[in-house]
């Protein structure tokens, strides 16, 4: 699949990256049809964060579900979903208080909370477990989760 890859300050390229695939029973595979450029990307684009080169941009994604894991029954293939930029599990202490912006389990550094995610024509996500309220048409909502190695600063 293609993704917008960060090459260094004020440099991005569109490149082939490994295809996203279902890795856990709670994953959902989404073919991204719209991905927006965000002002918060510019902090990374300008080299003003610890975002590493080689990682890809994009956290405002909309697309069609093309595959779901065995543990997903709420979201179905063919659903149109919007992926919240927050990466969240839906069941930790913060998520259960609606604070999916400060999920405790999606954050790789245990003393931190909150995480976010990227541009690619397929996005990996265990949306099934947590969110996914789909709706037909152009505007629907779901959640996503990128198994990104390490996040940069929280992006809005």
């Amino acid at each position: 699949m293609k993704a917008v890859v960060y090459e260094g300050p004020r440099q991005v390229s569109v490149k082939d990256v490994p295809d996203a695939r279902i890795e856990r029973p709670t994953d959902v595979l989404v073919r991204v049809t719209s991905a927006n450029i965000c002002g918060s990307d510019l902090h990374m684009y300008e080299g003003r964060t610890d975002f590493e080169t080689g990682r890809w941009f994009g956290h405002e994604n909309l697309g069609e579900v093309v595959e779901v894991g065995d543990g997903v029954d709420k979201v179905k293939v063919g659903d149109w979903v919007v992926l919240p930029f927050n990466i969240a599990c839906g069941h930790c202490k913060n998520c259960e208080r609606q604070l999916t912006n400060y999920c405790l389990t999606a954050q790789p550094e245990p003393q931190m909370a909150g995480a976010a995610f990227g541009f690619a024509d397929m996005g990996p996500g265990p949306a099934g477990r947590q969110s996914c309220c789909g709706c037909r048409g152009a505007t629907s909502t779901a959640c996503g989760w990128a198994r990104t190695r390490k996040r940069s600063r929280p992006t809005t």
Binding site: N86, T100, P154
Partner: peptide
């Protein structure tokens, strides 16, 4: 302060 909890609002805004 802080990043927004998207899921708290996205259904309503949709």
């Amino acid at each position: 302060t802080g990043q927004a909890p998207v899921k708290k609002y996205n259904r309503q805004l949709r």
